[in-house]
Write a protein that binds this DNA or RNA. Structure first.
Length: 515
DNA sequence: GTAGGGTTAG
């Protein structure tokens, strides 16, 4: 049988097979090999492959090598390379959709070899094997995590061509794929075209809205779901909880809390984590703390949510203590938890502690700092009034500062009267992203505090010249359970009088220091 | 052997 060369593959799926360099520890690798030695049949090999993948190791190279080295059992010819598994001399009667699906899934579950899934998809098509309703969800999921919309669209077409466009699993994964690629509208189109929606269909679309920062739409859709026949499950509730966390509406969060009690939604680890985060983000830190202390198992996510929650409410000392407690329980901190602890230091003026944790991150845990971590450090220094040190730090960073960091610096220069440095960074900021309005606003504030009104209006002209306008800041209030968004002077909402009164009340409470 | 979920600087 003629076997296609890589170059004759359809160009849309023309990926090159690639394997990451050995990314297993030596002990783990030995362990895998020992396990693989015990396989004698294809099903046992597949079982062990699944086991290895579930243990979080990117073991595809090992597994595929094993496919070839167990050739006497499986009937494959010996080969040195995994890519030769499907060599021209391999007995093609062993090829079936199930085998390809298994290989495709193993690649989609790996961290560094996802594109290989598409190589095998191409090979599968070339063998005239029809993909089934298991194949597309695997591929679409890989597509979603690679955020490759073009590829996703082609897969969608392909699924339709194979008569799987209406399959429930395929449709649900399509919704996820489109929203993961940032196209909520396309996701919604698939959602609206679904004749029979199940719980996953609704949850996928709701989480799509949460992902695109449209929490209100997520909640609206959840309300629609309740009218429909479909019952939400634990995952749906977790998704709605994260929408509540984004909105910050306390009535909504109270409602969801009573819903969880009423419907006896089991308080699993994931649900408790989502609940904890929602409570902390909605300002109910004390309830979050008591929930956290009552949790029987706590993961790195539980700790990070709690640390971040404490940090944003100025309880930096407690956040730092919790971080240390976490390490005492042998939970290894990750990059996200370091963002939490660094921001705790920053919000509570703990400069030296911040530097200690920053060094611990690289020194003890070998975590490469990301731009967010550098951002925390710049924030830490500027909040403490150490503007010069912040500027030096920015210049010594191995990565270029992004607009967020530059805006932080410009703001600090304005507050602390470092106008000359401020102006220098300002120019860089506007050059960095000339379409971002907040860059001009940050710069205009510096000129304003220097009373250089002409320069400020020059900036304004430059913005108009480039077709930019300042987006008004909007606020939101909650009146009897509904969250209303409004801008200054906005009377378009039928309840604007109440909104204004409440906004006024909030202002007075602040003046009187009542919360 | 399939799909959706919880933590990320200002």
């Amino acid at each position: 049988m003629h076997f296609p060369s890589r170059t004759s593959l359809p160009p849309i799926f023309n990926f090159r097979l690639s394997f990451p360099a050995a990314n297993l520890g030596k002990a783990a690798e030995q362990n895998c090999l020992a396990l693989l030695e015990t396989c004698k049949t294809l099903p046992s090999l597949l079982r062990i492959q699944t086991h290895i993948l579930k243990s979080g190791l990117d073991a595809n190279l090992l597994v595929l090598t094993k496919f070839t080295s167990t050739s006497s059992v499986l009937g494959y010819p010996p080969a040195h390379s995994a890519a030769l598994l499907f060599s021209p001399t391999a007995p093609t009667h062993l090829y079936d959709t199930f085998l390809f699906n298994t290989i495709i899934r193993s690649f989609t579950e790996s961290t560094h070899s996802k594109p290989n899934a598409f190589v095998y998809f191409s090979l599968m098509l070339r063998q005239n094997l029809a993909p089934n309703n298991f194949t597309f969800p695997f591929l679409l999921k890989a597509c979603a995590s690679m955020q490759d919309l073009a590829l996703g669209l082609r897969l969608h077409c392909s699924a339709v061509r194979f008569g799987l466009g209406d399959d429930q699993f395929v449709r649900n994964t399509l919704i996820h794929m489109y929203s993961a690629c940032g196209h909520t509208k396309l996701a919604r189109r698939v959602f609206d075209g679904t004749s029979k929606s199940d719980c996953v269909t609704w949850s996928s679309m709701i989480s799509g809205y949460v992902r695109s920062k449209s929490a209100n739409q997520a909640v609206d859709l959840f309300r629609e779901m309740q009218v429909s026949e479909v019952r939400p499950d634990e995952v749906t509730i977790i998704t709605v909880l994260s929408a509540c966390a984004d909105i910050g509406g306390s009535g909504l969060s109270k409602w969801i809390l009573s819903y969880i009690d009423r419907e006896n939604v089991p308080k699993t680890l994931s649900l408790s984590n989502a609940l904890l985060d929602m409570l902390a983000k909605c300002g109910d830190v004390d309830t979050a703390v008591s929930l956290f202390s009552n949790m029987s198992t706590k993961t790195i996510i539980s700790y990070t949510s709690m640390i971040t929650g404490l940090a944003t409410h100025g309880r930096g000392r407690e956040a730092v203590e919790l971080f240390d407690e976490m390490m005492n329980y042998d939970i290894i901190p990750d990059d996200v938890s370091f963002i939490g602890v660094l921001s705790a230091c920053s919000h509570s003026g703990m400069v030296e502690d911040g530097f200690r944790y920053f060094e611990m991150m690289t020194g003890t845990f070998g975590i490469e700092p990301k731009i967010e971590h550098y951002g925390c450090m710049v924030d830490l220094l500027t909040r403490a009034g150490l503007v010069d040190r912040a500027v030096d730090f920015t210049e010594s960073m191995p990565v270029n500062p992004n607009a967020v960091i530059l805006r932080t610096l410009v703001g600090a220069c304005q507050v602390h009267g470092k106008f000359d440095i401020g102006q220098r960074i300002m120019k860089r900021l506007v050059a960095e992203d000339p379409t971002n309005v907040s860059n001009y606003v940050a710069s205009a504030n510096v000129y304003a505090s220097m009373c250089q009104w002409e320069k400020k209006s020059d900036l304004r002209l430059m913005m108009m010249d480039r077709g930019l306008s300042k987006v008004p800041g909007w606020s939101s209030v909650e009146i009897s359970g509904d969250v209303y968004e409004f801008v200054a002077g906005d009377t378009s909402n039928p309840r604007w009088i109440e909104i204004f009164q409440m906004a006024g009340d909030i202002g007075r409470y602040q003046e009187l220091n009542i919360t």
